[in-house]
């Protein structure tokens, strides 16, 4: 399916989603409460079949926190990028997609570790790389560590 078709499909599922045709991939920004439905539909729909989540990135856009999902279909070979943002920086919560793509289980733990985004319905929400006693979330832009990070 080409980008125009995908666009139509996404708008069908989530009316009012913000869609940008980026240089590389079609990028869709959705509200946090719509993400799980959209993701599920995109995977289940016989015309899209986005069955392979090849990258899950935690992001800090300074004003908001969020996650970027890079999806492709092993059958149709088309791509889509989903973005989800939350402005709540103290206790951000997003929906987990690890029931849709199992690889998200580890990647979401990584995002939780570095950005502090809590994923609802995740089976095992713990830090994966850092120690449990670690304070703060290091990949956030406002993270301060006077000992290890040298500002120039």
């Amino acid at each position: 399916m080409d980008n125009a078709g995908l666009k139509e499909k996404v708008l069908q599922i989530v009316p009012g989603a913000e869609i940008i045709e980026d240089k590389q991939y079609l990028t869709v920004t959705v509200a946090p409460n719509k993400l799980h439905t959209l993701a599920e539909k995109l995977k289940e729909d016989a015309e899209t079949l986005f069955d392979y989540l090849f990258c899950l990135t935690g992001m800090d856009w300074t004003d908001s926190l969020g996650v970027v999902y890079h999806l492709t279909s092993t059958k149709y070979n088309h791509y889509i990028v989903l973005k989800v943002k939350t402005t709540n920086r103290t206790a951000p919560v997003l929906d987990s997609v690890c029931d849709i793509w199992k690889t998200a289980e580890f990647h979401e733990r990584e995002v939780y570790d570095f950005f502090g985004i809590d994923f609802k319905n995740h089976p095992d929400m713990r830090r994966i790389f850092l120690d449990d006693s670690w304070e703060g979330y290091p990949l956030r832009k406002d993270y301060v560590d006077e000992v290890n990070i040298i500002e120039r």
Partner: peptide, 17 residues
């Protein structure tokens, strides 16, 4: 902008975003 590149590393798909 945002840029993504996939390559086939020895152990699987390596991506740079």
């Amino acid at each position: 902008g945002e840029y993504y590149q996939r390559v086939e590393a020895a152990r699987g798909e390596f991506g740079v975003y």
